[in-house]
């Protein structure tokens, strides 16, 4: 069966000025994600989590290797509206209301004009934004902004959802709602890859975990840990440090 996401030998070198030889943010990364799976990407600051997600959704050109989404390159997948992306620090125009902003994005996503209002309403309900749908974005809380970020990522009904720190800054209840939402998306056949620093409840949400250390994969597999995820992760990161030394 064709994996939904296939990454082979992916490396990303950031350009510094006119030079193409900057620091290596991702180094020879390979893994596959099957349709409907949830993959959590873990790692320290600067480990390459955000770079990986941006590369998968075509925001950053890759240096070497390949990325295939349902057998197509990211540019084609983006063109076919297969990808949804929730950025790390979502920012939206404060003068708009969530509903109007989603309608605006819907027009750009070529969501059918007749069903656009209905689709926007569905996204608002799915993301629990009914009460704030017509409030100005500038007045929304951090949780409200995060829910809007989720709604805009889901608006065009993508098959693959890439989320950068979707639970960052949320209170425990909102975090719980977000993980439940991710689970529901997976049950509906969506493939979800999300980067996070939060370890709590990760084992119950993720089908696979990818641990990155300085752009390299130091673990990819199902989350089954005897000593608890925190101890396990710290051990892996220490091992990574020792290998680098």
């Amino acid at each position: 069966m064709e994996p939904e996401i296939r990454i082979e030998g992916l490396s990303k070198v950031y350009a510094i000025g006119w030079s193409r030889s900057g620091p290596k943010a991702i180094n020879s990364l390979s893994f596959e994600v099957q349709k409907g799976q949830i993959v959590g990407v873990l790692g320290g600051n600067g480990s390459g989590k955000s770079t990986l997600l941006k590369s998968i959704c075509g925001l950053l050109p890759i240096s070497t290797g390949s990325i295939l989404i349902s057998g197509s390159d990211p540019a084609t997948a983006v063109h076919q509206k297969k990808l949804g992306y929730l950025p790390e620090r979502p920012s939206f125009p404060g003068y708009q209301t969530p509903r109007k902003f989603l309608l605006h994005l819907g027009r750009l996503s070529a969501v059918d004009g007749g069903s656009l209002k209905g689709r926007v309403q569905t996204c608002i309900e799915e993301c629990g934004m009914q009460k704030v749908a017509d409030t100005r974005i500038g007045q929304l809380s951090k949780g409200g902004i995060q829910r809007l970020a989720m709604a805009q990522a889901l608006l065009h009904d993508p098959e693959v959802l890439l989320m950068d720190e979707p639970m960052d800054g949320l209170d425990p209840l909102a975090r719980d709602n977000t993980t439940a939402h991710i689970r529901r998306l997976s049950d509906a056949g969506k493939t979800v890859v999300f980067a996070t620093h939060l370890l709590e409840g990760l084992e119950s949400v993720c089908d696979q975990l990818l641990v990155l250390h300085r752009g390299r994969s130091i673990f990819f597999g199902p989350p089954q840990f005897e000593s608890g995820i925190k101890t396990w992760l710290l051990d892996r990161l220490r091992e990574g440090e020792e290998e680098d030394d």
Binding site: L59, Y85, E88, R89, P90, F92, P93, L105, L108
Partner: peptide, 13 residues
């Protein structure tokens, strides 16, 4: 800088 552009660039424009 704020990242608003990302909401537009993925699967939209």
């Amino acid at each position: 800088q704020s990242g608003l552009i990302y909401s537009y660039l993925v699967s939209r424009v």
